[in-house]
């Protein structure tokens, strides 16, 4: 931990325990009733890597993301974050689902940003950012508030500390949501279509913050339709369709020279 945090730096991302992968998905399957949404996903994300998940709607990108912090239960396979099995305890040849306290503990280290922001409307901006660290990590109000102001600096919202969510634009709300997730000092950030609910002119400010975060070395998995962001910021893109990974590689390779017909068809539609 840095003893003297400078206001404009993202504090200590990616404090990985092991040198191994940050996220490892092995044969992940997920069904909703009779519909199989994920049909055996294998995926590895390294520390400090920025990976964009691309694919048509209904391809299972968001579901995969939600499996990583166990907002969705798996139907098969397993997911490890920083070497730790998420959501289950292995006992003999079975995986037993963890209790709510254990699940909460695992989720603390995984930040998530939602398409519809989901800020707490009954708390002001600082309240939104400080509640989790105070409640869950037992940080003092003074410490949490000081850090909230630091984070607001990072997301360019220093003047909005005491505003309520409904007084903010969508882009500002999403940046507060990013600050709220960062306040828990996560080692991994999940972004679930963070700019899809925004007016076009507000997309840029959110992507700018995400890009800054990526440059600071945060491990990020981003479900997005923003090809420009993927090309510019992502170390790697993964293209999914109908519950499987179709192809992956560097952004330049997959977007400029797609090998599979499904990728080509998708890119023709979005580019």
């Amino acid at each position: 931990m840095s003893a003297m945090p400078t206001p404009a730096s993202t504090p200590e991302p990616s404090r990985s325990k092991a040198a191994g992968p940050m996220v490892e998905a092995i044969g992940v399957r997920k069904s909703f009733g009779a519909v199989e949404v994920l049909s055996g996903i294998d995926m590895t994300i390294l520390p400090r890597e920025v990976v964009c998940l691309l694919g048509p709607s209904g391809s299972g990108k968001s579901t995969l993301l939600r499996c990583i912090n166990h907002l969705e239960k798996l139907s098969g396979g397993r997911i490890l974050v920083d070497g730790e099995l998420i959501g289950y305890r292995e006992r003999g040849d079975r995986l037993h689902e963890l209790g709510s306290a254990e699940l909460a503990r695992q989720r603390r280290d995984i930040g998530m940003v939602f398409q519809r922001f989901n800020l707490f409307p009954h708390l002001d901006v600082v309240g939104n950012i400080t509640q989790a660290p105070m409640l869950i990590k037992g940080e003092s109000r003074a410490e949490a508030t000081r850090r909230a102001h630091e984070l607001l600096e990072i997301v360019d919202l220093a003047g909005k500390a005491n505003a309520y969510p409904h007084q903010l634009s969508g882009g500002q709300q999403q940046r507060v949501a990013i600050a709220r997730a960062l306040a828990m000092r996560p080692k991994l950030m999940l972004f679930d279509e963070p700019t899809s609910a925004l007016d076009p002119e507000l997309v840029g400010e959110v992507l700018a913050v995400m890009k800054r975060l990526a440059l600071e070395g945060m491990t990020m998995l981003v479900v997005t339709h923003e090809m420009g962001f993927a090309r510019e910021v992502a170390d790697r893109v993964i293209f999914m369709d109908r519950g499987v990974v179709v192809e992956q590689g560097t952004a330049a390779d997959v977007i400029a020279r797609p090998r599979h017909d499904r990728t080509k068809a998708f890119l023709k539609r979005v580019l």
């Binding site: 907002l71 909460a104 995984i110 998530m112 989901n118 707490f120 509640q131 989790a132 828990m184």
Partner: peptide, 23 residues
């Protein structure tokens, strides 16, 4: 209360009881 509210709290690491009473 929108379902996204309890999801956001859960993702932050709130226990179900904390989600209920705080959010």
């Amino acid at each position: 209360v929108d379902k996204g509210q309890s999801e956001a709290a859960t993702a932050l690491g709130y226990t179900p009881f904390q989600t209920l009473t705080r959010v």
